[in-house]
Design a binder for these strands. Structure first.
Length: 331
DNA sequence: ATTCTGACA
DNA sequence: TGTCAGAA
């Protein structure tokens, strides 16, 4: 297919297509004689993906990164394109939902008082701005190169992953899935936790930011469903899961992001859904500790967030850093 | 009639 | 990215 037809069908200009080529996002073949670009099926899919990602606000350079990952996946590429788009659509959907809720709050507040204090308005505006930034794509693919060696790392890095197996076992014990129950593992990585729950009869889905991780996960647990996504934009509709679990992932979030993650988990849970999390946290009431580039959040903060969200919690400290928390909704 | 490259808005 | 020019 030549450029005009592609541009017409994809509703973009020829200039845009050449621009993307110039930026290294796509490389259609060229006819030897006249240098006309020729687009095959894959090029079209690729372009379509670029357009979708662009519309969702991703920068050219981030798109390049995401796409070059896709290139490494041979035949799974089309699937990757679609997952990528699904993932950004969900981000948009969640963001939209939040903004609507924010607006509702303003309307509500407007009904009560005579009006909103200017400060409130600015605060809310600031909130939705922050929301945008925090859901940014930055560094979303950094984990890919770790995928192959992840499991070995877990075994070797005693300091960080000490009591790893015990923590996973405790989650399984606390969640004690009823066969057939549907569970979600956030930041599933190569699926170690999800795999154990599957063994108990749960129907598991896993979300991770890294496609490489998911690929490895898929290899280990073919029956598991995996999707690209993260804590702040879970790629599922409301009320789909009986429980949500997560291990060694929450500490990648800032405190503000963690605050947003809880309602997001609750969103995909059924009304009585439970949450069980194992992660590295600090003991103190104080501020987050920074170690080796990770920011561990005070354990009590998570408990507070959960309890103020209507959960009753139970927890166990595995070692200096590692804690396991179970949260079930009140009544 | 189409497409390409390059320059400039 | 849009637009325009000059060439194939």
């Amino acid at each position: 297919m030549k450029i005009k037809e592609v541009a017409d069908r994809l509703k973009i200009t020829q200039r845009a297509i050449r621009f993307y080529e110039d930026k290294g996002l796509i490389a259609p073949s060229k006819q030897d004689d006249n240098q006309y670009r020729m687009f095959d099926d894959e090029d079209i899919w690729r372009l379509q993906t670029i357009i979708a990602l662009r519309e969702s606000g991703m920068s050219i350079s981030d798109i390049r990164t995401a796409l070059s990952d896709a290139d490494a996946h041979g035949n799974g590429q089309l699937r990757y394109f679609l997952e990528l788009q699904r993932s950004v659509m969900f981000s948009k959907w969640v963001e939209m939902k939040q903004i609507i809720e924010t607006t509702d709050e303003m309307i509500d507040s407007l009904k009560r008082n005579q009006g909103l204090a200017l400060d409130n308005i600015f605060a809310l505006a600031e909130g939705s701005r922050r929301l945008r930034e925090q859901r940014a794509w930055e560094d979303r693919w950094g984990f890919d190169r770790l995928a192959g060696i992840h499991d070995r790392l877990v075994q070797e890095d005693e300091r960080k992953y000490g009591n790893y197996d015990e923590a996973l076992s405790l989650i399984v014990k606390w969640v004690s899935p009823i066969p057939g129950e549907r569970g979600l593992d956030i930041g599933t990585g190569t699926g170690n936790l999800a795999g154990r729950l599957i063994k108990e009869g749960a129907d598991m889905a896993g979300v991770d930011q890294s496609n490489e991780m998911l690929k490895e996960c898929q290899r280990k647990f073919p029956e598991m469903e995996t999707k690209l996504g993260n804590f702040l934009a879970l790629p599922y509709l409301d009320g789909k899961f009986d429980f949500v679990v997560s291990s060694f992932a929450l500490h990648h979030l800032t405190h503000d992001q963690m605050r947003m993650a809880i309602p997001e988990m609750r969103r995909v849970l059924k009304p009585r859904g439970r949450i069980c999390i194992a992660d590295l946290m600090t003991d103190g009431e104080g501020s987050a500790a920074r170690e080796e580039g990770e920011n561990y959040i005070p354990f009590s903060n998570l408990i507070d967030l959960l309890e103020s969200s209507g959960y009753v919690t139970k927890f166990q400290k595995m070692n200096e850093r590692l804690h396991v928390v179970l949260a079930v909704p009140i009544r």
